[in-house]
Amino acid sequence: MKLSILDQVPISNGKTAKEALEATIELAQFADKLGFKRYWIAEHHGFKGLASPAPDILLGIIGSKTKQIRIGSGAVLLPNYQAYNIAERYNLLASLYPGRVDVGLGRAPGGSAEASIALVDNFLEQVRKYPEKVDDLLRFFHNDFSEEHIFSKVQPTPVPKEKPVPWLLGTSVKSAVLALEKGLPYVFGHFMSDEDGPSIIKGYFDNFQGEKPLAMVTVSVICAETTEEAEELALSNQVWKLMQDQGLGNGFVPSIGETKEYEFTAEDLDSLRKSNHRQIIGNPAEVRIALEKLSEIYETNEFMIITITHDYEARKRSYELIAKEFQLS
């Protein structure tokens, strides 16, 4: 099984954004040594508890401190940008780190409506243009605009020897269909979707035209030495999401101590029950069994793992236990 990491760069309560960013860089170096295949950085805007609005800047640092792990965005939220600008940025990364750069693409705003307005004029119009922007980006990477097109007169520089590899991310049939239309590898966000992911991936596989399709599934995992410890660690992320949904707290990932003071309502408990299928929580053997079961259900052997704990060392340990269980290195 191929395992990768998605990092939203969460800020724990009591920590600073600088500390969260440093923890991400340290984790990326650790993941490189452990044998994980990819390390992707998410893009969010205006969230107090998330420290990465510009994945490419952070990837430039991570690339310089790692040796073999592929680095990429999960995702570039393309409606916020012109395709030419993104082609320049990821060509630059691919020139620095040849054969190691992915560029995941998404259409979500990544923040509030107000943040979207601050980022780009008429965000909804840019979302409508998203398929065209994907086309433009692919043409910029391959320098294959028709001669009469105005963009044929410009080429994003620097021009890398090995091009960035684009992926399309999503949580719905619509995104999978777009990946099919563009002939792109696809990533399904199991950890944040209530859609029937396996049927979406099956439809993608069954209808892909061309070489063997590539599909990856992103799943939330927390692993510890014991099941009880993993369940306790998971409380931070679970309560954090509940508080976000209700506009409670200060926006940062709460400590285990703080979660134990949280008073769960009936609605909270129902929400947790409904989201259980999107999370894997347990000891190494339990995590391996759950991921192997998901691999059979999704019919893919590549998973991207997202792990959020209040304690950054516990997050590192979770990935270390998973790597050892699957003998990645």
Rank of each mutant, 00 (worst) to 15 (best):
M1P: 01
K2Q: 15
L3R: 02
I5W: 11
L6N: 04
D7T: 03
V9I: 15
I11F: 08
I11S: 01
N13A: 14
K15Y: 15
E19K: 06
L21E: 08
F30H: 11
D32H: 06
D32V: 08
G35Y: 10
A42M: 11
H44L: 13
H45R: 01
K48C: 02
P53E: 10
A54K: 03
D56E: 15
D56M: 04
G60A: 13
I61H: 13
I61S: 11
G63E: 04
G63L: 07
T66C: 10
Q68F: 11
I69S: 05
R70D: 11
G74D: 05
G74E: 03
A75Q: 06
V76P: 05
L77V: 07
L78C: 02
E88K: 01
L92G: 03
P98K: 05
D102L: 04
G106Q: 01
G110Y: 09
A115V: 10
S116V: 04
V120A: 14
F123D: 09
Q126F: 00
K129L: 15
K129N: 15
K133P: 05
D135Y: 01
D136Q: 11
D136M: 04
L138G: 01
L138N: 00
H142E: 14
I150R: 13
I150K: 13
P156A: 15
P156C: 11
P156M: 10
V159A: 06
K161M: 13
E162R: 06
K163V: 09
W167Q: 06
L169Y: 09
G170Q: 09
T171Q: 11
V173E: 15
A176C: 10
L178H: 09
A179N: 07
P185F: 10
Y186R: 05
Y186E: 12
V187M: 09
E195Y: 06
E195Q: 12
G197Y: 06
P198C: 02
S199V: 09
S199C: 03
I201Q: 03
Y204D: 12
F205I: 00
Q209A: 09
Q209Y: 05
K212Y: 13
K212G: 06
M216G: 03
T218F: 00
V219L: 02
S220Y: 14
V221Q: 00
I222H: 02
I222C: 06
E225V: 03
T226K: 06
T227G: 10
E228S: 09
E228Q: 12
E228N: 07
E229S: 02
E229K: 13
A230N: 08
A230E: 09
A230P: 05
A234C: 10
A234H: 13
L235H: 05
L235F: 06
V239F: 02
W240R: 02
K241W: 12
M243K: 14
Q244N: 12
G247I: 02
L248G: 00
F252H: 08
P254T: 08
E258H: 05
E263A: 14
E263H: 10
A266H: 04
Q279M: 15
R288P: 03
K293C: 04
E296M: 09
E296L: 13
I297P: 07
Y298M: 10
E302Y: 04
F303I: 01
F303H: 02
M304H: 05
I306N: 14
I308L: 15
I308R: 03
H310P: 12
Y312H: 12
Y319C: 12
I322C: 05
K324T: 07
L328V: 07
S329V: 10
